[in-house]
């Protein structure tokens, strides 16, 4: 069985290379890396482009904005300059009204700003103006709940790496496994395989292994080009491999339900979208959808995050590995059963 397994896996890898699947995987990994490194900002925080016209005698807010406030601020002195500065369409006007001290602030938005941006600006101005009027700056007690170095937020662009690895490396197996299976159906090579001593178990295991290898290549490349070579490989590679095994099996079961690749594309794409739903909770931790916990991608994405950006919770990795192994253990007999049924009863 071991000899057959290796023969099947080597055959799959040859087909992957000769069908240019490896080229596609490498190209996509490089493309994602370029996006992460050069296009997606490290800090996409709220950036306010302000035009400040402080009409008060003290011009306290103008001074503060000019000296201390973060972000690009344009200070103007006339109504014409204020109106002209607002014309380009991406600036927010801050008109400070009052005598010597500020009495009111009038904000002019462009209309496309999010409510989050509006609230941040209003809160900042309220606090700042109130502090100035009292002649003091607000002081709030701030407590860090995680020790320094143990839970720092990764830069935004790098925080995308676990998602991209999940999508590109682990779930890629789904699509490519389907493509390979339909090529075999088309060439009728499965029929030739079935009159040899080769069995379904080694066939599926070999396909999983080949897709797993491809996933490792993809994840390795993406990681080296974004995070760098010094990372937690012992955490990343096993979960990527296990994830790939599960998704390859899912693809093999799904592909059995359809006659050709054209029919397979849409359902597999929709399934991939559904499997990517845990990404919502990854970016919006406040969102709690218990159903998402049932998807194998849920433990996988959090394990990848822990592997790339450790928070001192290695159990996330081991728990995810166990969950993926359990999923594989359930999915494998199902895949064998559907595969045999499809091949023998329907003679595909």
């Amino acid at each position: 069985m071991r000899r057959r397994f290796w023969a099947l896996a080597v055959r799959d890898l040859k087909l992957v290379v000769r069908n240019h699947h490896l080229t596609i995987v490498v190209a996509v990994a490089v493309l994602y890396s370029l996006l992460v490194r050069f296009l997606i900002p490290a800090d996409p925080g709220v950036t306010l482009n302000l035009v400040v016209w402080d009409q008060t005698g003290a011009r306290a807010l103008a001074h503060w904005y000019g000296e201390a406030a973060p972000g690009p601020v344009l200070l103007v002195d006339t109504e014409t300059a204020y109106a002209e500065a607002l014309e380009p369409g991406n600036r927010i006007g801050v008109k400070v009204i009052g005598g010597h001290l500020p009495e009111a602030v009038e904000l002019t938005f462009q209309g496309h700003e999010s409510s989050r941006v509006r609230r941040v600006l209003e809160a900042t101005l309220n606090a700042q103006v109130a502090a100035m009027l009292r002649g003091e700056y607000p002081r709030f007690p701030v407590t860090s709940l995680r020790p320094p170095g143990g839970g720092e937020q990764p830069p935004f662009n790098l925080s995308l790496v676990p998602v991209l690895v999940l999508f590109e490396a682990a779930m890629l197996g789904m699509l490519l496994a389907g493509v390979l299976l339909f090529a075999e159906k088309d060439e009728q090579t499965l029929r030739a395989y079935r009159v040899t001593p080769g069995g379904t178990v080694e066939y599926l295991l070999a396909r999983c292994a080949a897709m797993g290898m491809l996933a490792l290549v993809s994840a390795g490349l993406l990681t080296v080009l974004t995070i760098g070579p010094a990372t937690n490989w012992a955490g990343i590679l096993p979960v990527v491999f296990l994830g790939s095994l599960v998704f390859t099996l899912v693809a093999m079961v799904l592909a059995n339900l359809f006659k050709n690749l054209g029919q397979f594309y849409l359902p597999s794409f929709l399934l991939m979208l559904a499997l990517m739903l845990p990404v919502i909770t990854y970016f919006q931790p406040g969102v709690s959808l218990p159903l998402l916990h049932l998807l194998p991608t849920h433990p996988l994405i959090y394990a990848l995050r822990e592997a790339y950006f450790p928070t001192g919770s290695p159990q996330v990795l081991s728990r995810a590995a166990l969950q993926l192994l359990a999923t594989f253990a359930v999915a494998f007999p199902l895949a064998v059963w559907t595969f045999r049924r499809q091949l023998v009863v329907k003679d595909v």
Binding site: R4, A7, R11, N19, E187, T189, R191, A192, V195, T196
Partner: peptide
């Protein structure tokens, strides 16, 4: 048993030798 099919059900991306070597490796 050996089965010679009417349809040419072969791996088109593999060479003739690779096709035979692959299938040969499946037998005990």
């Amino acid at each position: 048993i050996g089965v010679s099919f009417e349809s040419p059900n072969l791996y088109r991306k593999l060479s003739g030798l690779e096709n035979l070597a692959f299938y040969a490796s499946l037998y005990d």
